[in-house]
Amino acid sequence: MSVASLSDFTAAPAKDKLPPVRGYWASVGNRLRYDYLTLFFLSVIAIIVLLAIFAPFIAPFDPTKSSMAYRLKAPGFRNFILGTDELGRDMLSRLLWGGRTSLLMGIVPVCLATLIGGALGVTAGFIGGRTNTLIMRTMDVIFAFPSVLLAVAISGTLGGGAKNGMLALTLVFIPSICRVAESATTQVRALDFVEAARASGGSTVSIIRTHILGNVLGPVFIFASSLISVSILLGSGLSFLGLGVEPPTPDWGLMLSTLRAGIYTQPLLCALPGAAIFITSLSFNLVSDGLRQAMDVKS
């Protein structure tokens, strides 16, 4: 009698023609490799980031050095490739330096909020019960305020400055990230492999580390990346209102605000920081969308 032997699967199958064995992140990377739109905007972001990092070396002028003689000059005026602002400072240099503050305003609050909100959300989701109610209802209270209003209120209370602006934005983003993390955790917690880990005697911390985080990270990461563009916009908004970065530090939002004076004489100048905000924010948004598509597909 030929009974199925236990070594049915031990023979090496012809694997050469199949897609190679990949982990989750490797297959996400592979899908991204063919997503040319996302790749394009990813490189746009890379360029912007590099320009911001190397601003001290690239910028042709000191971004804070003003000159009453060359105020509001059009692009191409003498050595000022992009013209000068209302105090006669070089626009190109200011845009490059301003990218540093604006990107920081975009990325730092999201990173901080992801750490704090993610930890709160995973805790609430995994422990459940009263802890969940306590954390999530607190978040709901914060979430109930419109985000712009809340950011304005917080940085208004704390006073201006880039640091306080980032702190305000962090507080604004924590509840929504916490929510995403909580709902992802609640879903994963009920799955069989988590039950199996509990049945193996795993402690809460060990189960969260080995089994929960790997599965929650994806959705949280996607959501957080979509917040970067929001954060850049909000950060610029705060600076525009005079609640974020303080002059003379260059910042896109602040530039937009101060250049208002020259909107009738040099409208193009006024549009430059706006365009920078627009392109950066759009790129982050589209990359985040591409990430979502690459990460959402199962197997």
């Binding site: 030929s2 009974v3 199925a4 049915d8």
Partner: peptide
């Protein structure tokens, strides 16, 4: 009795 199982698994349809 042991069951007379079909050994192996169905082929991969990508090949």
């Amino acid at each position: 009795q042991a069951i007379e199982a079909i050994p192996g698994s169905p082929p991969d349809m990508r090949v």
